[in-house]
Design a protein around this nucleic acid. Structure first.
Length: 499
DNA sequence: AGTGCAGTTGACTTT
DNA sequence: TAAAGTCAACTGCAC
């Protein structure tokens, strides 16, 4: 029997995920090579937004990124069709109206939830005979067989020609408005347009502003200030949220940096920066290769190290009221700005998993929500490493007093975030519980009233944690698992342990 | 002037 | 990408 309906229009879809940019975007680049009208879509997925690791600050950033992209399409009378709906439903309905030939997207190094979502999409595509083409995310290789030559492959990827498209030459299509309105889903309930000024604003344009200001002058102090809670805010690139949401590709960051290298006055700082770009992908690669680490200890021998959850400890840590100034300052700063530097992240993790003796799994979402640059592929490997449950890396228990003294010498960072201590001079500022009654009177801050006494004894808790973790570290079971981990995740597994 | 000694520094090891 | 512990060498100082 003849089909009375006219044949559906053939189209291609570019599905934006955590790659919210036009410059150096492989899906767009390859979609353009087809002779098909291209539909650009982004989907705010309810299940993803409601998940435990998600925070409004992430979605605000995504929203800003999309606005930036939309502004570039305005003159072309085109746009990215943004949905707030379940992506399988969106694809289903689109496929009823159009003949989707191909879907283009970047691989997503996401959590279990988005991985499972992709499996659903994959099933849909194979049922519908849609070709879903996914492109490599930065230097992270999917289905990697061996770590051998990984560094060389990374460099090769970074030096490839960027995939540049001219937006004005894209064959973009528009959707019937009634159809779109029906499918786009409910209005996003959060007020996205108001940005808290303390958060870095999303978008490709902003990514390039940060990139340029870093290479113009900020980079000079990169190595010197990288560990300082205050000075790192300027001396580090601050590209992390832009990389996390793909506002800029790692390749563009790499090439732009290398291009500046010739004329740079501090070459060491730049090569230090480039090596960290590689570390970024290195950790994401670990997660890609062993994604169970979102939930389980990488080193299974640590599964028998059971910690008792203490909700009071966790909430004091979370809210920045532990009584340990540098820890509290970091946590309060995270709430307001979504950023602290690498060393301070390691320090707050060390405090909660060692001094407060809490399981990393009971704090993983708290930090995921606080980090504006939350990147699952970095978050879980880092958290586990800092918690000392890999059995491969040495145990690093940070001394919060010493670190404050060395990296916040004048206490500027602490005083910024803990105003109740603003009158306390150094060195008392780093351990205010040591103030005498007279000093408390003098500086008008009473420990236990205006600012808490420390909830644990730092030295005693450090020793207790160290004894237990090191007793695990020395077991045969940990070492055997450690060997397995090195085989899997490290280029040269014969290197010395505890490096 | 040489000796004893407390405190410091630095290399190396252990947790 | 840690920090404490250990030990020997060194330093400054009093006598």
């Amino acid at each position: 029997m003849a089909n009375e309906n006219p044949p559906l229009q053939d189209i291609a879809i570019v599905w934006f995920k955590r790659d919210l940019r036009f410059t150096d975007h492989e899906p767009l680049y390859y979609a353009q090579k087809q002779n098909l009208p291209i539909l650009l879509i982004y989907c705010f997925e309810p299940i993803v937004m409601e998940y435990a690791d998600s925070d409004v600050r992430h979605w605000r950033f995504v929203y800003q990124s999309l606005q930036d992209m939309q502004s570039k399409l305005e003159d072309l009378n085109a746009k990215i069709y943004v949905f707030h709906n379940h992506i399988p439903l969106v694809f289903q309905r689109l496929s009823e109206k159009y003949n989707i030939k191909k879907i283009y997207s970047n691989q997503e190094i996401g959590n279990k939830l988005t991985y499972d979502r992709d499996l659903v999409v994959q099933k849909f595509c194979s049922d519908q005979q849609i070709d879903w083409l996914e492109y490599q995310h930065n230097g992270v290789i999917r289905r990697l067989k061996s770590r051998k030559n990984w560094e060389q492959r990374w460099t090769q990827k970074m030096e490839e020609h960027p995939k540049i498209v001219n937006e004005t030459q894209l064959n973009l299509m528009t959707l019937d408005d009634a159809f779109y309105q029906d499918l786009k889903g409910p209005e996003l309930s959060i007020q996205f347009t108001s940005n808290e000024p303390a958060f870095q604003p999303g978008g490709e344009t902003n990514a390039w502003k940060y990139m340029q200001s870093f290479l113009k002058e900020r980079y000079v102090n990169y190595s010197k200030h990288i560990s300082k809670p205050q000075l790192s805010r300027k001396g580090c690139s601050r590209l992390s949220p832009y990389l996390a949401y793909g506002n800029i590709s790692m390749r563009m960051v790499y090439q732009y940096t290398v291009q500046h290298y010739k004329t740079a006055k501090n070459k060491r700082a730049l090569s230090n920066f480039v090596s960290r770009l590689q570390w970024h992908c290195h950790f994401m690669q670990k997660f890609e290769d062993e994604c169970r680490m979102e939930f389980e200890n990488v080193n299974r021998a640590y599964d028998s190290m059971v910690k008792t959850k203490n909700d009071n400890y966790i909430s004091a840590w979370q809210s920045g009221t532990t009584g340990v100034p540098i820890v509290d300052a970091c946590m309060r700063c995270l709430h307001k700005t979504g950023y602290i530097n690498f060393r301070m992240r390691a320090l707050v993790v060390s405090f909660v998993v060692f001094n407060l003796w809490q399981d990393w799994r009971d704090v993983k979402y708290i930090l995921a929500k606080l980090f504006l640059d939350y990147e699952p592929g970095i978050h879980y490997p880092q958290l586990q490493m800092q918690s000392g449950v890999t059995g491969v890396n040495t145990i690093r228990i940070y001394n919060p007093i010493k670190n404050a003294q060395e990296h916040d010498e004048e206490g500027i960072f602490i005083k910024t975030w803990i105003p109740e201590l603003k009158n306390v001079p150094t060195p008392l500022l780093f351990e205010p519980w040591k103030m005498t009654n007279i000093e408390q009177e003098m500086y008008q801050v009473f420990i236990g009233k205006d600012y808490p006494a420390p909830i644990v004894d730092i030295e005693v808790s450090r020793k207790a944690a160290s004894d237990i973790v090191w007793s695990f570290q020395k077991t045969k079971a940990v070492a055997e698992e450690g060997d397995r981990i090195l085989q899997k995740h490290v280029n040269n597994p014969s290197r010395p342990r505890n490096s």
